[in-house]
Design a protein around this nucleic acid. Structure first.
Lengths: 125, 125
DNA sequence: TTGATATATTCCGTTATTGGAATATAATGT
DNA sequence: ACATTATATTCCAATAACGGAATATATCAA
């Protein structure tokens, strides 16, 4: 049948590289007018408007009128589902880091015990 | 033109809910045969095979032959780009939490200083 | 009102994605 | 060789997504 409606799914909304660009840009400023986004990213204006529309539908950004320009701001909370999902895997990377650190520390300890011993294997001399 | 090729983009690969289901399942087991995934998730076998194909192309999972079954395992590292990207926003949520905690602590402190004072505003009595 | 600027929307053509059914391939057992 | 099990692939139809050009809407200025 059909791909999962990007309009209702945060994961699909952030799948688009340019939408992530927009999000990244917005995250570095409290709010931005469409024109600024267009100029900064160098994308065609209709494209930006359409991507902002998707992000708006999902709730990732919100708009407010300021004169004749529309100012967009990022709603960080809406990105939390992504963080919560991916977060469950970070233990693997962190464990990996822990392992590396532990090994380094063990090695450093061995070094300090016998400064002239070869790095490789202590063995029984 | 066309949507971003899911085959080369981790973000697009994880946009599919059922693929996330498969990833979740695989993350809870060191490795799983296709048949097990089919039975566990209750999805049609061709669907599972196809989704696994996408995940395989992106490198999120890897296969090995065991008899006549293909055993899939999750490559956690491949999910890191997603974590790295979303992680840059977690400061907002955490700051929010910090703010809440700090306020609670301040309130608790105020309470302990004047146990009978109203919660609202200390003022000059 | 007219004109200019800022943004949104619509229309169109192309391509991708998904599910489902059927089929193909591979390994195993008899 | 043949049947069985496990998995992958192919074919199809429906739909959705994207980019680009053109156009519509809204706001402000003169």
């Amino acid at each position: 049948m059909a791909p999962t409606h990007t309009t209702t799914d945060v994961f699909s909304a952030i799948a688009e590289p340019r939408r992530r660009q927009i999000i990244d840009l917005l995250s570095r400023h409290r709010c931005l007018a469409v024109g600024t986004i267009v100029l900064t990213l160098g994308l065609p204006q209709p494209a930006v408007s359409k991507h902002l529309g998707v992000l708006r539908d999902v709730g990732i950004v919100s708009v407010s009128k300021h004169g004749q320009q529309r100012v967009y701001a990022l709603n960080h909370e809406q990105l939390r589902p992504v963080y919560d999902w991916i977060k469950t895997f970070d233990q693997y990377w962190n464990r990996q880091l822990d392992r590396i650190r532990e090994r380094a520390e063990r090695r450093a300890l061995a070094q300090s015990n016998s400064p002239e011993a070869p790095t490789r294997k202590k063995g029984t001399p």
